[in-house]
C-alpha cells in the first residue's frame, strides 16, 4: 500500500452496531495505522462513540469485522484492553480517591506491581502538569484538570493505542491548548491516537488522517488538508445580512462563488479568491451588515458533504 507508514493496528470492514431497531453504525470500513493520529469527525449521534466502544472491546460488534492488533474483540477482549488506554467521554474518575490513588489503583487493574504504579503515577502527573495536586481529591479540580488526570490514568499501562472520546468537549480554550500539546507529545513518543471530535479545529490540529462520519456512515476520508482540497474551494466569504433577510439576499449573490450555503444566520460563499468574491457582491449592490473572508475548514467540508453544520 502506498503511503502507509505503519502497519494497520485497527481494521474495520462493514462494521455495524445496532441497538434494537436503531442502527448506530452502518457498515463502516476504516483502518488505523501504528503511530498515526486518526480521527472520527462528526456531530452528536454520528456513531463515533459507538465505534469507539467497539474498538475498546466494551461493546460487542453486531456484524462486520473488527480487528485490533489483529485480535477479535469477541474472543480476546481482555488481551486487547490490556494494550489500550481509554479516555471516555465522561471522566469516570474515582471521586472517593485522591488524584494519585486514582492512577495507582487503575494501574493495579492491569496487574502492574504497586511500587511501579506509585512511581508511574507521579511521573504521569508531572507529564500532565498536575504533580502538585497528587494528594488532592478529584472533586475540587477544574474540568480541564480532571481531563488531564483521566489522560494520565489512561497512560498507566503504557498503551500502544490511546482512545480519546471527545477529549476537549466542554473545556475552555486555554485548557484545550494544554491538552492538545500533551497529546501531540504522546504522538511523538509513538503512541497511536484514535479520537472522536465534533470540533474541526481539534481534528485539524491533531489528526493525520480522519473520517467524516454522519448518521452512522463514513462520508469522506483523508488528511485534513486533502479533505479541504477535495471538498471545498480554498476560501470562504461569510456574509451577514439583517436578521431574516438571508433568503431574500441569496438570489442576489447567486453565482458569485463556486457554491453557496444559506444558513439561518449567514450566507457562505465558497470561492478560490474570497476578496474577489466580496468585490463582486459589492458590485451587485447587495449590502451585508458584515463580511468576512477566511480559509476553508473541515466545518465547510462537513457542510458540503452532509448539508448540515457540525455543532448545532
Amino acid at each position: 500500500m502506498s503511503g502507509s507508514e505503519g502497519t494497520a493496528v485497527i481494521t474495520a470492514k462493514a462494521l455495524t452496531k445496532r441497538f434494537g431497531d436503531f442502527e448506530a453504525v452502518k457498515g463502516t470500513d476504516f483502518e488505523v495505522r501504528a503511530g498515526e493520529a486518526f480521527g472520527f469527525l462528526g456531530p452528536n449521534g454520528a456513531g463515533k462513540s459507538s465505534t469507539m466502544r467497539m474498538i475498546g472491546a466494551v461493546s460487542p460488534v453486531t456484524s462486520g469485522e473488527l480487528r485490533i492488533f489483529g485480535l477479535d474483540p469477541a474472543d480476546d477482549g481482555r488481551k486487547i484492553r490490556a494494550r489500550l488506554g481509554v479516555v471516555p467521554q465522561q471522566d469516570e474518575l474515582d471521586e472517593f480517591l485522591t488524584v494519585k490513588d486514582n492512577l495507582v489503583i487503575y494501574g493495579r487493574y492491569f496487574d502492574i506491581p504497586l511500587k511501579a504504579c506509585r512511581e508511574k503515577a507521579m511521573e504521569l502527573l508531572e507529564f500532565v502538569q498536575l504533580a502538585d495536586r497528587a494528594d488532592s481529591k478529584v472533586q475540587p479540580l477544574s474540568g480541564g484538570m480532571k481531563r488531564r488526570v483521566t489522560i494520565a490514568r489512561s497512560l498507566m499501562s503504557d498503551p500502544e493505542i490511546l482512545l480519546l472520546d471527545e477529549p476537549t468537549t466542554g473545556l475552555d480554550p486555554q485548557a484545550r491548548h494544554v491538552l492538545w500539546d500533551r497529546l501531540y507529545r504522546l504522538k511523538q513518543q509513538g503512541v497511536t491516537l484514535v479520537l472522536t471530535t465534533h470540533y474541526m479545529d481539534e481534528a485539524e490540529q491533531l489528526c493525520d488522517r480522519l473520517v467524516v462520519m454522519d448518521q452512522g456512515e463514513i462520508a469522506a476520508e483523508g488528511s485534513p488538508a486533502e479533505l479541504i482540497r477535495t471538498h471545498s474551494p480554498r476560501e470562504v466569504l461569510e456574509l451577514r445580512f439583517p436578521a431574516g433577510t438571508n433568503a431574500e439576499h441569496a438570489p442576489k449573490v447567486e453565482g458569485v462563488g463556486a457554491r453557496q450555503e444559506v444558513l439561518p444566520d449567514r450566507i457562505l460563499i465558497y470561492a478560490d479568491d474570497g476578496e474577489a468574491a466580496l468585490s463582486e457582491v459589492h458590485r451587485r449592490q447587495a449590502v451585508p451588515e458584515s463580511a468576512l473572508v477566511r480559509r476553508s475548514t473541515l466545518e465547510d467540508v462537513f457542510l458540503r458533504l452532509t448539508g448540515r453544520t457540525l455543532v448545532e
Binding site: 475498546g56 477482549g77 490490556a82 489500550l84 481509554v86 471516555p88 465522561q90 487503575y106 492491569f110
Partner: peptide, 14 residues
C-alpha cells in the same frame, strides 16, 4: 453515578 465499574471494565477486568 460513580462509574466505578465502567472504568474497571475498560481494563483487562471483566
Amino acid at each position: 453515578f460513580d462509574k466505578t465499574y465502567s472504568s474497571m471494565l475498560a481494563t483487562p477486568m471483566t
